[in-house]
Amino acid sequence: MKLSYRGTPYEHEPIALDMAEADRVAKYRGQEYRQRYPRHIPVPQAPLDLKYRGIAYGTYQTPEPEAVDIATHLNRTFANSPSEPLTRHKRFIEAAQLHRANILKRLEHRIQVARSKGDVNLLQQLEVEKLQLVESQR
């Protein structure tokens, strides 16, 4: 494509992108259209062993623990007992218990990662945090 900027002509070759259409249909001035956006393809990075100021670390990906969706869990939990009316207080208690369980699960994952990396200071801090969390549940 031939273009010019301030009288200087130049050739422009647009980059060919893999485009995808959005699932939603939008309407602008009475015309319906689907938004198009470039499809992003994640490029996996090779894991590296690095060192910063004498401290070794790596760029390894650790799997994240699966978080539980509170709304889905509550619906699944209370769907089994339709005769019992749900009160706001019961839902609050159930959500608080589920929230603590998710925090504990994430904390356990962080402890495993700290153990695998051999980070003693972080491991001690996480153990103290876990004790505080367990004591607050009692």
Rank of each mutant, 00 (worst) to 15 (best):
V43Q: 12
Y57D: 04
P85Q: 02
V134H: 04
R88Q: 07
D119S: 03
L50G: 08
R110Q: 15
I103K: 15
R39A: 12
N75M: 10
R110A: 14
L126G: 01
Q125L: 05
L107R: 03
V68A: 04
E94I: 01
R138P: 04
L122Q: 00
A114T: 00
I111H: 00
G30A: 03
Y57N: 02
E66G: 06
K90T: 11
V68R: 10
R115P: 08
A46R: 07
Y57E: 11
N102V: 04
Y5P: 03
A101L: 09
E129W: 00
Q35K: 08
H12F: 15
E127H: 11
R100G: 13
R106S: 14
G54A: 10
N121E: 12
P14E: 07
P38F: 02
Q137S: 15
D18L: 10
L48V: 14
Q61P: 03
A16Y: 02
T77Q: 13
L126M: 03
E64H: 08
D49V: 08
F92H: 13
P82I: 04
E108L: 06
T8Y: 07
Y60A: 12
R53Y: 08
E127A: 04
E32Y: 11
L123I: 01
H40D: 07
L104K: 01
R34C: 12
Y10M: 11
T87F: 06
R76Y: 09
R110H: 13
N121R: 11
H40L: 03
R24M: 12
G30V: 05
A114S: 15
Q31I: 09
R53G: 13
R91C: 02
A26F: 05
